[in-house]
Nucleic acid binder design. Structure first.
Lengths: 120, 120
DNA sequence: ATGGCTGTATTATGGCACTGATGCACCCCA
DNA sequence: TGGGGTGCATCAGTGCCATAATACAGCCAT
C-alpha cells in the first residue's frame, strides 16, 4: 500500500519562488558576496532553464526589500549588510510562521527535534 | 522595511490540503476513533465553510490509501488500525522528504532544533 | 558612436489547479 | 414506498503561473 501523501509539503512550488529561495540561500551563505554582482536575468534563466521574466520576478522582491541595488544597464548588486539582514528576517519569519506548526506536527508524530539533530 | 517573505512556506495552501491535514490529525489523535463514521461531506463542508466537493477531494486520498471505508449511501468509516498506520506513514514521509530541508534551512539561519524544544 | 551587454514594460497565450453549482446513484428508516 | 441522508460524476468558471515575442531604456568598452 502506498500512503505517500506528505502532510504539509506542497508538491508544485512555483518556479519563481524556488529561484528566490535559492538566491536567498546563496546570499546568506556568501556565494553571492556583498557588493558582488548577481547573475544577469538572462544568464540565470539560461543556466536554470527558465524564462528571463520568471527570474526577474524572483529578483523583484529583493529589490523591494532593498537587499539588492539595481544599476540599470549594468546589473544588480548585493547591498552591504544584505546577508545578515536577510538571515535575520528569514529567521524571524521562520520562528513565527513555520516552526510552531512543525513543532506540533512532530509532536503528533511522536518525534523529538533534539533526537534528530545528529541524523544526517 | 518589510522583508516579509518566508523562504519556503507556501502562502496560499489549497483548501483541500488543509482539510486533509486537519482530518489526518484528527484520526491520529483519535478525535475520529477507529470504526467511527467521519462527518459527512456536506456536514464538514458546512462546518468549515467550504465546498462539498473540496471536502470530498480531501477525503479521497484516505480512501485510496485504505484508511477509510466507504459505504455508499451511508457514510465513510475509519478503518481498524488506521491511526497507527497513518502516523507511521506520515512520520516516515516527514523524515524522508521534509526534515532534511528544514534541518539545513535552520542551520543556514543559525538555529538549533534542540534549543527550540522548550519555546512555545 | 556603435555593438553588446544590462534590467524592464507590454501584450498575448496556454496550461493547470482550485473552486463552484447541479444532478444522479445509492442506502437506510419510518 | 417514499423521504432524507449518503458519496460521486459532470460541466463550467476563475485565477495564478509560466512562457513567449518584442521593444525600449540605460550603461560601457572598443
Amino acid at each position: 500500500m502506498a500512503l505517500m501523501h506528505p502532510m504539509s509539503a506542497h508538491p508544485n512550488r512555483p518556479v519563481y519562488l524556488k529561484l528566490r529561495d535559492q538566491i536567498a540561500a546563496a546570499i546568506i551563505d556568501g556565494a553571492y558576496p556583498e557588493g558582488a554582482m548577481l547573475p544577469s536575468v538572462r544568464a540565470l534563466a539560461a543556466e536554470q532553464g527558465a524564462n528571463p521574466l520568471t527570474v526577474a520576478k524572483a529578483y523583484q522582491q529583493f529589490q523591494n526589500d532593498g537587499l539588492v541595488e539595481v544599476q540599470r544597464g549594468v546589473g544588480m548588486y548585493v547591498v552591504r549588510g544584505a546577508a545578515e539582514r536577510l538571515r535575520a528576517a528569514e529567521r524571524e519569519a521562520f520562528l513565527r510562521e513555520e516552526w510552531p506548526e512543525i513543532r506540533s506536527r512532530m509532536a503528533r508524530l511522536g518525534l523529538d527535534p533534539a533526537d534528530l539533530v545528529i541524523v544526517s
